[in-house]
């Protein structure tokens, strides 16, 4: 049975907006799993911490599986302590490990591996499964051939992002701060200005990427509406953008239920992210910016 998941909000939204977003997801979105937590920058976490209990309670009351996402890049002792607390057995939380350190701390207990851990092949997948991973969200750059191989021999559930800007890189350096001539230490939370990321263009004024603090994302919006039913995986991730994600979830739910076509989904999604071109290039093993017509791809 295919399931829809909602990935963690990757952007720095105001805490009230963040809380209300999840409340509405809990009340209205046809998603089965909701990831909550700060994956990008530890400096943001204190703002969300106070509202997390309310959000989790609301989601769980609505019957959603709640998974706590860890940071992707853990550098400081404080960040490490945060991950240790989140993954501690006594906390009793279901956790998505976005760094191998978190997976190590979760060893022997069921957990999820997030897309920031490099799982490219069956050797790594089976090792992590033996460690206790029950679900693995694959990295965004994995092509169809790899997903098929992993799906065929798997001992754990697999998850693939099918909607939203794709994470491309994470850095120690904060580019939002740098754009303002600041550094990460005195960033003034510049990333809060751009709820979908700060769009960069090339010198030829063409779309390039979106910057989200220390993270770099695709300018394009990943859209695997046409491909999701052929992948052989069970979980499909929608990565939140600053749009009506309830509507997006409904569209993808209809596709899984066979009630909507990919073309229909493309049209409806365009209203949700009107300024983001679609892409599925990674899936077809070409440049990630590409949006390939599945019809044109030979089997």
């Amino acid at each position: 049975m295919s399931k829809l998941t909602l990935g963690p909000v990757l952007f720095n939204w105001p805490p009230e907006k963040w809380r209300d977003f999840y409340f509405r997801i809990a009340d209205e979105a046809p998603v089965d799993v909701v990831y909550v937590g700060e994956a990008v920058c530890s400096k943001r976490a204190p703002f969300f911490d106070p509202v997390i209990p309310d959000v989790v309670e609301r989601l769980e009351e609505a019957g959603k599986e709640v998974v706590f996402s860890t940071l992707a890049l853990i550098m400081t002792e404080r960040e490490m302590e945060g991950v240790r607390a989140l993954t501690a057995p006594e906390a009793g939380l279901t956790v998505e490990a976005n760094d191998i350190s978190a997976a190590a701390l979760l060893k022997g207990r069921p957990h999820v591996i997030g897309p920031f851990v490099n799982v490219y092949n069956e050797g790594t997948l089976s090792y992590l499964a033996r460690q206790g991973a029950v679900r693995v969200c694959l990295p965004g750059e994995l092509p169809r051939e790899s997903i098929e191989v992993l799906a065929a021999g798997k001992t754990v559930d697999l998850e693939v992002q099918v909607f939203g800007r794709l994470p491309l890189a994470i850095s120690a350096r904060c580019y939002h701060a740098r754009a303002r001539g600041l550094t990460k230490d005195n960033c003034q939370y510049a990333c809060g200005d751009d709820p979908d990321g700060m769009e960069l263009e090339t010198l030829a004024s063409e779309a390039f990427v979106a910057v989200n603090g220390t993270q770099t994302l695709s300018f394009t919006c990943c859209n695997l509406a046409a491909e999701m039913n052929e992948m052989g995986v069970e979980y499909f991730r929608l990565s939140p953008q600053d749009t009506d994600m309830v509507a997006a979830a409904r569209i993808f739910r209809e596709i899984l239920d066979g009630k909507e076509s990919a073309e229909g989904a493309d049209d409806r999604l365009a209203d949700l992210v009107p300024d983001m071109p679609y892409s599925n290039g990674f899936y077809y093993g070409v440049e990630g910016t590409a949006f390939t017509d599945p019809e044109s791809v030979s089997e």
Binding site: N118, Y120, G140, E141, L166, A169, S171, E287, G288
Partner: peptide
Amino acid sequence: VMAEGRCSLSSYITGISPN
């Protein structure tokens, strides 16, 4: 500039990836 092994910028633009 990015954390090594965690960067898909090259494959985003060319389809060819360091990893």
